[in-house]
Simulated scan of single mutants.
Amino acid sequence: MELMELKEKTTLSREEAAKRLHAIADELASNNDVVVERQDLRFVAHVPDQVHLKVEFEIEDDGTELEIELTW
Rank of each mutant, 00 (worst) to 15 (best):
D26Y: 01
D49N: 12
E5L: 01
A18M: 07
L3P: 10
A29Q: 13
V44M: 04
T11G: 00
L21E: 05
R20W: 07
R20S: 03
E15T: 10
L66T: 11
L70I: 13
Q39E: 13
D26H: 08
L53K: 09
L28D: 10
D49W: 04
Q39M: 01
V35N: 05
N32G: 14
L6E: 03
V47N: 02
D33N: 15
S30C: 03
I68A: 11
R14Y: 04
A45S: 13
T11C: 00
Q50R: 15
T11A: 00
L53N: 06
N32L: 00
E69C: 04
E15P: 01
L12C: 03
L21Y: 08
V47D: 02
E37L: 00
L6Q: 04
R20V: 03
K19P: 00
E5P: 00
W72G: 07
K54D: 15
L6K: 09
L6C: 00
K54A: 13
D61P: 04
D49I: 02
V36A: 02
L66Q: 04
R14L: 10
M4P: 00
L21F: 11
F57C: 12
L41W: 07
L21W: 07
F43N: 06
E5V: 07
I68F: 11
D26Q: 14
A17I: 01
K54H: 14
E16N: 12
R38Y: 03
V55N: 08
V34N: 04
L12Q: 04
E58V: 13
K19G: 03
E65R: 13
L70E: 04
A45H: 08
E16H: 10
V34A: 02
V34K: 03
L41F: 06
I24R: 03
T64A: 05
V36I: 12
S30A: 13
T10N: 09
I68N: 12
L66E: 08
P48G: 12
S13Y: 04
T10V: 13
L3D: 14
E67V: 07
K7E: 15
A17M: 11
A17L: 08
